[in-house]
Design a protein around this nucleic acid. Structure first.
Length: 514
RNA sequence: GGGGGUAUCGUCUAGCCUGGCCAAGGAUACCGCCCUCUCAAGGCGGAGACACGGGUUCAAAUCCCGUUACCCCUACCA
């Protein structure tokens, strides 16, 4: 890499909203990847200068989600670092000092206009169809006027002296040079009258004082960047490089928010998503590795990452594809880790005692191994393995129609039961052998036996290979469930026997035929 | 209203800078076939897009202009 500073420093700067959503996670990931790729430092900073927002909500969940994803930071509110504190509300002195300096240098000035006065003027302008710009009322106040206004107890905000004519251009690594006419910018407030900084001021001050070299953030900040550039210029600081990444939108193309169902990383975690899948999926939202790979590990992403390969178009996030990717990672993941992740879920459902012994654990682990290839999330593993741990309630209705409502099924299942009772040892191999022999004798196909047995054993029509199911269930449970099925057919489906006797294939509502 | 950004299959994207290799590639989702005791997985196939209109050029998804749509900013929110 050439032309880059000795030490790349990037940051992720969330405000305390109480949760980390997919879009934020992706912004954090892009920063993290950029740092990792270039041997840089990833800094975490909390932007909590908005009193209203910061009050109730917390940063805790955001840090938790980041940590869970594995997007660790070298400097941040919890671990500290040489440029701390990393929470804006603890850096007020800095902002005040910088603002005062600008006032001394004539690049900013105190403003005593009240919010109400400004509101009124803005409203008036709107009625007249004009664009409101702060007229610079307080810009040329004499010392005496200032003292007088101050004496009146007027609130004192600080405004930056706006730019002269011309344009401000934002050099952006993704968008190229974006030009903004300067008459767009008036003397905007940099310090509120309550002594806290305004976002556009605080970011610029912090990014400079924290030595940030590359600002990688959402595109919604692109329009604000010229204002920040104005702050850099006034302060006499060299601005960092900017890269505005396209936004992540909800399925209805609107901005991501809680009301769109699952958008928070924490929710996906609860639903049984793997962190690497979320990382993989969000990376693909606006970035591609340059070849046709889609299932990528973090390491592979680091190796392939570059800002140049980030697209400019907003992306709508699609849970379906993320779920597919999760399945891919679930299959590739180490079985012991998957089991460790599923275990608490099994315990929560009462499928596995919390003090399970080695034998029980080994069995549960084998169940997970058998089931994980056909599901996409951890929670689905639990759903798919329920019948291995507890008796199921009902048989799948469609399965009953297709597999139980056949003449002679009860007898067939009874015979299967006898074979299972006798087979030795009780393994997948030997039971399969015994069942195939039975089919041979009866002159029926494998399916004719396997399907009803599966339904009898699991209540379902789908699942792992039947003989794996049998071995995992164990002899006792198999026999019990086969008995139960025979009873069920005889008691609940007497018409099947009757129909068999009458030689008819009783009333299934036939399809329209192709 | 003003300023800015973006526009390729439903969705995520490759291609665009360095026009021709693009009768536009991959993925997901959907449909079908194969495999198979089922469901998945896997393999194969199908359907599905260059927003619109003008240019420039022998040639445009790629360059230029305009239109439209969507998003962002325009706060003493971040």
């Amino acid at each position: 890499m050439q032309g880059l500073p000795d030490q790349i420093r990037v940051r992720f700067a969330p405000s305390p909203t109480g949760y980390l959503h997919i879009g934020g996670a992706r912004t954090a990931l892009f920063n993290w990847l950029f740092a990792a790729r270039n041997g840089g430092v990833f800094v975490l900073r909390i932007e909590d200068t908005d009193a209203d927002r910061a009050r109730e909500e917390t940063v805790g969940p955001i840090l938790d989600s980041l940590r869970w994803l594995g997007l660790t930071w070298q400097e941040g509110p919890d671990v500290g670092g040489p440029y701390g504190p990393y929470v804006q509300s603890q850096r007020l002195d800095l902002y005040r000092r910088e603002a005062e300096r600008l006032i001394q240098e004539g690049k900013a000035y105190p403003c005593y206009c009240t919010v109400e006065e400004i509101e009124a003027a803005r409203e008036q302008a709107r009625r007249e169809g004009r664009t409101y710009r702060y007229p610079g009322t307080c810009r040329h106040l004499t010392e005496e006027e200032r003292r007088r206004l101050e004496a009146q107890g007027r609130p004192r905000a600080v405004r930056l002296v706006g730019p002269g004519p011309g344009e401000t251009v934002v050099p952006d690594l993704i968008h190229g040079e974006v030009r903004f006419p300067n008459d767009e910018f008036d003397d905007f407030v940099i310090m509120k009258s309550d002594g806290t900084p305004v976002y556009n001021f605080a970011v610029a001050v912090d990014d400079h004082h924290m030595g940030i070299t590359h600002v990688i953030r959402g595109e919604e900040h692109l329009s604000n960047t010229p204002r920040q550039l104005l702050v850099y210029r006034a302060l006499g600081y060299e601005p960092p490089a900017f890269a505005h990444v396209p936004m992540v939108l909800a399925p209805d193309r609107s901005k991501l928010s809680k009301r769109h169902g699952a958008v928070a990383v924490e929710e996906f975690r609860e639903k049984g998503f793997l962190p690497e899948a979320i990382l993989n999926y969000t990376a693909l939202l606006g970035w591609s590795p340059g070849d046709d790979r889609e299932v990528l590990t973090l390491e592979e992403m680091v190796e392939a990452f570059s800002l140049e390969r980030i697209s400019k178009t907003a992306a709508i996030y699609d849970v379906e594809k993320m779920t597919w990717l999760n399945g891919q990672h679930l299959r590739r993941a180490d079985l012991d880790r998957v089991f460790a992740l599923v275990r608490p879920r099994l315990e929560a459902r009462g499928f596995l005692p919390r003090d399970a012994g080695p034998e029980e654990l080994a069995h549960a682990r084998a169940v997970v191994a058998a089931v994980r290839d056909r599901v996409r999330t951890l929670e689905e593993i639990v759903d798919a393995s329920a019948y291995f741990f507890a008796d199921f309630e009902d048989y799948d209705p469609e399965g009953v129609r297709k597999r139980f409502e056949k003449p002679g099924v009860a007898e067939l299942l009874a015979e299967a039961r006898r074979r299972l009772e006798a087979v030795e040892p009780f393994t997948a191999e030997s039971t399969e052998h015994a069942f195939r022999a039975l089919c041979q004798e009866k002159g029926i196909s494998g399916g004719a036996l396997f399907h009803p047995v599966r339904l009898a054993l699991t209540g379902r029509t789908m699942g792992p290979g039947l003989f794996d199911v049998i071995a995992l269930l164990g002899r006792r449970r198999c026999l019990e469930r086969l008995d139960r099925a025979v009873r069920f057919i005889k008691e609940k489906l007497p018409h099947v026997q009757a129909a068999a006797a009458a030689g008819g294939d009783a009333g299934t509502e036939g399809g329209a035929g192709a």
